[in-house]
Every structure is written in C-alpha cells, then in structure tokens.
Amino acid sequence: MNQASTVKRSKEDLLFDILNYLVLGVFLIIVLYPLYFIVIASFSDPSSVLGGEVVFLPKNVDFSGYKTIFEDTRIWNGYYNTFIYTILGTILNVMLTMGIGYPLSRRYFSGRKAIMIYLMITMYFGGGMVPTYLLVKDLGLRNTSTIMIVMGAVSVFNVIITRSFLEANIPSELEEAASIDGCSQLKFFFKMVLPLSGSIIAVLILYYGIWHWNDYMTGLIYLDDGDKFPLQLIIRSLLIQTQVAANDVSDIESLSDRLKVAESIKYGVIIISSLPVLVLYPFLQKHFTKGVLVGAVKG
C-alpha cells in the first residue's frame, strides 16, 4: 500500500512538474518574444517588417535603419547628454545617500528619529508639479543642464535601503574599537564604512544610474533647448510622435518612403537607447534583486 501511494504520488508530481514547466515556458516566451522581435526587426529589411513577413527570423538582413540612426546627430547628442547627466547625477546621488544613510544607521545617533520623519514626510506629501516648477524657475535652474543632474538627488527609498544595509553590516563594536583608537566619526566613515559598503554602493549606482538613464519627466518639464535634451526626449519624438501620422494612413501602399524610413529606424532606436542597460543587466542582476530584498526590511 505504501508503494502504491508512492507511485501515485510521483505520478501526480510528474504531471504537476510537466504543467509547471509548460506554464513557465509559456510565460518565458510571452516576455521574451517582443524583445526578440525588436532585435530581429531592427536589422531586417523595413518593407519586410512593415509587411509582416518578419516573425521568427530576420528577413533580408539590412542595416540601413542603423545607418540612418548613426547619421542622426540628434540621437548622438541626446546620448552624450544623457551620459553626462547620468554619470554626474549618480555621483551626486551616491554621495548624498551614503552621507545620510550612515548616520541614520547608528542607533545611538541622536538625530536619527527626527531626520527619518523629516524624510518620510516627503515620500507621501510634496508640493506637486507646478510649485516645484515655479521653485526651479525662481532658482534659475530652468532650461539648464544642472537641473537634469540635481533633480531627484535623494531618493528616500534608497536612503532606507542604505540605512538597513549599514545597520546590518557595520557593527557598532567596530566603531567603538575605532573610537578607542582615537578615530573620529568622519574618519571612520571615509576609511572604514565606505570601503566596506561596496555592495550597497553598487546597488545605489544601479538604481540611480538607471533612473537617470530612463528619466524623461525632468527633461520634459524643465528643458526647452533641443541641444540639452536627454536621450529619452529625443527617442520619444522618434518613436511616438511620428506614430499618429503613420496611423492616419490607412493602407501600406500609400506610406511614403520617408515614413517607411521613420518606421524602420524605430526598432534600432529602441535597441540603441536600451543598449547600456541591456549589456550590463545580466552581470548586475544579482545586485538589482539584492536592493529589493534589503529594502523589504521594514523601516
């Protein structure tokens, strides 16, 4: 009887496993296919893509879309701008966040509670779009590169992640030992805390870096000059704003060649603009998920 139940059990489990892998496989394909399609469409002949001939494999491999992109100075200018904004912005982010995250992680720190409340309030209540705009305008930061770097310099969520990490990883005994040896708090922060915080700094660089790279709102609200535009604003005009015009044309024949080119570069634009993130992603995935888990510890 015991044996019979084992057989029955394993049969049931086998069915479960098959179904499980099947469902997961379907899910995998649903997520993967659109991404895969963009890749193959980006170097297929535009007419084949528009005609719906490209489904599983690239057809009539053609790099004219990429060629158009490489010749487009707006895209490169946007790329350059975003690069600068991302690097400088992220450096600022990490400095400010580590600076405030460390004191908040010390249980004896007298300002700890008050500062946490001060930060948490801003998570739930803010001035809103227009008052912030008016302030930035009054500060003279509207339509400057500075606002692109400074905006969002402190994310309270990331401060909380940092605090939780440092609480768990910088034991107070270490600090006591250092202070007995005459090490000041500042010196301890720079000589001990920072070198020991490699993995949380990696998480912060990733989160803030991707935020800057993908940031579209700040440019939309505060910038006028096209030569200051970040990549996301440029690709918006390439990807979405030309779309309505294409939709108004009811059949494929009447699409002009110009429109065809505009359509064909879209896939390439998506690839090019996501490239830095896509290339780094598989290597850094571990850090990304770590951030979520550290953050899940209740603050």
Binding site: G99, L119, V154
Partner: peptide, 17 residues
C-alpha cells in the same frame, strides 16, 4: 560629525522637497 554627513542631503530635501 554625523550631522555634518547628513547635511548635504538634508539641504537638498529642504530645498527641493
């Protein structure tokens, strides 16, 4: 010194939030 470390972030939040 800990307050000093907090200061830049506190100022940012004061101005922009």
């Amino acid at each position: 010194q800990l307050f000093l470390l907090c200061l830049p972030a506190l100022l940012y939040v004061a101005v922009f939030c």
